[in-house]
Design a protein around this nucleic acid. Structure first.
Lengths: 230, 230
DNA sequence: GTACGATTTGATGTATACATATTGTGCACA
DNA sequence: TGTGCACAATATGTATACATCAAATCGTAC
């Protein structure tokens, strides 16, 4: 899996954390990453620190980097916090979007739709994440953006099962989610912040059902330990 | 001003940014900081990247670190976003605080009160910041915390004049702010989230008057340039 | 005199060697 | 056998030399 550049390492680690290829609480060894990505430890450390700043990792002094853990406490906070942030972001996006961002949003949705149709779970995770991050950019509020980013990290990780539907009901929900993305695009395009806000709540309710399905049966998967941040 | 440790550099830079000793948009030279703080460039870069993650700085690829800029756009967002985040944090703090944090909160308030009484503006900025950061810790919500942190950075920077009262009305407001901190402590102690929330709005309204005073007469001071983040 | 481009200068980015801290292992001893 | 201390192994933290990139300066052509 040898990559060449720092940017690729950054993107790769983000993706691997979002898709749970790297599990919550897992420790990341600088030397190993150096070898795998053909970089010296210095840029690797840079990347790890950047990802810590974005909420993907925690760094413990003298003890290295760990994939951000997911505790029950975090889950409760997630379910409490997400609706208000998501709806605020959606409304602001409808107000403030710029044409170039709209193109990017449509592009992300195209990729997402294809992933849904071909059943590519990993691609669904990353393109869905990108879709909502772009909405965050559209909202253009530097104070809400970091919260949104952290919510999206955990949303992606909790929602793994959402993208691997096991029955028709789940397949239906996935199709609905895809449709809602299109509706988001419409509402934002029309600068209709009220509709965008309402859509955010609907979108949230939809995914919440699946999230809770994931959380209840097998909570052990998501909690390893919780190393202290520096 | 030679310091010895990385931690001191981190704290020192935070303080200097909050107190506007380092102005928005100002570029930070790694070599100069290395010399001033008697550290090699490696740990300096670590610190700069951490501060970028916290929102104090922006880092431009191959062009170095800049103190986070303050644009008119940012100000508008600030005034829109702060009330809801502050009030949410206050309510959550009243719900979730732990004894140790309460001690820390009281300690910060003691320092703040002393600073107000002695007219030590710089100490007011940092201890007020610490007070509200501790409330953020009490709230114990990892998703809201980064937003709070960014709001507090700009709140401190915009509010410089608040701590250097030029007339009796301003002195009175400062005394009121100090009193409100005590009321925060009471409400939180009593787990009274509704009162804490209301206090947050009051506290906001109070400082908003002064913030706007600062913003209107001399807006040029606060905007230099806006380097692109990497 | 102006505009463009090459060169120089000074910064940031990277690699590597070394220092230091943490953790695990093994042995001594109760 | 269990506990605790010492030591070794391994990881992270730091320093420094070198590579690379950006911007400013100087020169030349028009």
């Amino acid at each position: 899996m040898n990559k060449t550049s720092k940017e690729e390492l950054l993107i790769s680690l983000r993706r691997r954390i979002l898709t749970m290829d790297l599990e919550p609480g897992q420790s990341l060894d600088e030397a190993t990453i150096s070898r795998d990505y053909a970089l010296s430890r210095t840029p690797v450390r840079d990347v790890l620190r950047q990802l810590a700043g974005e909420g993907y990792l925690t760094i413990a002094e003298n003890r290295g980097a760990f994939v951000a853990s997911m505790s029950y406490k975090a889950l409760r906070d997630f379910f409490r916090t997400a609706p208000s942030i998501y709806s605020s972001i959606a409304a602001l996006a409808a107000e403030n979007w710029k044409p170039q961002q709209m193109d990017a949003l449509r592009a992300a949705q195209t990729v997402f739709r294809t992933a849904v149709e071909t059943g590519n779970a990993e691609e669904m995770v990353t393109s869905n994440n990108r879709f909502h991050l772009i909405m965050g950019e559209m909202a253009d509020n530097q104070y809400l953006e970091p919260s949104l980013q952290r919510l999206l990290i955990d949303h992606a990780r909790i929602g793994q099962t959402f993208y691997r539907p096991k029955d028709d009901a789940m397949r239906e929900r996935l199709a609905t989610a895809c449709l809602q993305h299109d509706q988001f695009i419409e509402a934002i395009q029309a600068h209709d912040d009220q509709t965008a806000k309402k859509l955010a709540f609907d979108h949230w309710e939809l995914s919440r059902d699946n999230l809770e399905l994931f959380v209840r049966p097998d909570p052990l998967e998501m909690d390893l330990q919780l190393p202290e941040a520096s």
